[in-house]
Nucleic acid binder design. Sequence first.
RNA 1: GUGGCCGUAGCUCAGUCGGUUAGAGCGCCAGGUUGUGGCCCUGGAGGUCGGGGGUUCGAGUCCCCUCGGUCACCCCA
Length: 417
Amino acid sequence: MAELRHPPGTFDVMPAESGPWQSVVTTFAGVVASAGYGLILTPTFEDIGVFQRIGESTDVVRKEMYDFLDKGQRHVALRPEQTASVVRAFIQHRPTTPWKAWYAGSQFRFERPQAGRYREFHQVGIEAFGSADPDLDVEVVALGWEFYRAMGIHRMELLVNSLGDAACRPSYRQLLVDYLNSRHDELCDEHRDRIADNPLRVLDCKRPECRSVTASAPRQVDHLCADCAAHFARVTEGLAALSIPFTMQPTLVRGLDYYTRTTFEYAGTALESAQNALGGGGRYDGLVAAMGGPDTPAVGFALGVERILLALTAEAVTPRPVALLDAFVVDFSGGAAARDLTARLRAAGLRVDRSFDARSPKAQFKAADRSGARLALIVGPDEAAAGTVALKDLQNVGEQVSVPSELVVGEVTRRLI
RNA sequence: GUGGCCGUAGCUCAGUCGGUUAGAGCGCCAGGUUGUGGCCCUGGAGGUCGGGGGUUCGAGUCCCCUCGGUCACCCCA
């Protein structure tokens, strides 16, 4: 049992299963590149202060932070999400706005793992800084929508809400606090004592007790100031104009305290509710300033890679596996000929593998077959003497032809078309 | 943090009432075929039965502890 294994809540993606992972990232990169987003890489860990700005009353900060003291006694944390890191980078480097960035990478939250939820998980996302234009909210939401469509996910609904801003949130918040206090005894244990702490969070509690209370709670959308109302109207108008269906969800507050105005979530309808959040995001006009930067509006989203893969499975959308190899070289003369031929073919841009250890012909052909290569290229004493390479089609029956050695690259290329 | 379920070969699993040398299928390797894959046949390698302790003449099987996995609750990705 002293066997080494990955830590709890983490996993390996072996080459045989990594195809869908690759397609998530390449598809996402293509979609966001079409709108001018550039790739950003930030550290996997940051000073814990970076993430504490997410909000002291959020679960992410209160109980899910994967933090520790390093050898220099610095209190650091593995990033639980990437928006805070991107904001920190924005403030540190002060790029000119509008500024658009996308990312892909690991996130960490220290909690008990279960289906679709891990201690190390993966997200792709975008962040756009420097504009409060509601059309930018629409662009961001639309890019996520387009990405899911490109992945082949259709059983999904888009939930949207507006949380207001500094002008209208406080008065609404008080309204909500008063309401919740009036029905204090009916709430679930966890939220009964947190009304003053973070009343909005009560809205997305899934427990029946809280649900029956929040069903008739005052809604932020009914108490928006004129600016927020106009902003939200323009967002919904834009989504309609782009033919993106959405559902108004007045209780959608999401787990992070920094959101203002627009919030949204892509919910997979083919998945269990415990892990149906495929992705989500919103506007966070106050976060940059709160973290010490210039007053800068921003909006973005993060999409969960594991959830995307779950949804693909649930919808039975299996991305077609791609062949890893064009050709497999079989050598009956010891290996030197295979060494030289694979090098030539690879230099010509072909994907080629071979056997090692001078294995038997049967074993080499078996390996060629398992590799999925389209062609087997055979070199041995006979071919060496004649200056040729035998070329065999592994996917159709039988056919084997002899090609002059110097013409092999051209012949292989021709046959792959 | 709390709770349910599960740990036997690389994988999926069987293993009766506690009984002698722990099995199957798939996969892997080799041979059948001195230079030809898939199908077939034959053979082989591969196990601390998660770990420790206990009961017993005897434990994969029963008991205790422990480690790991998995699922759920809250919340999220």
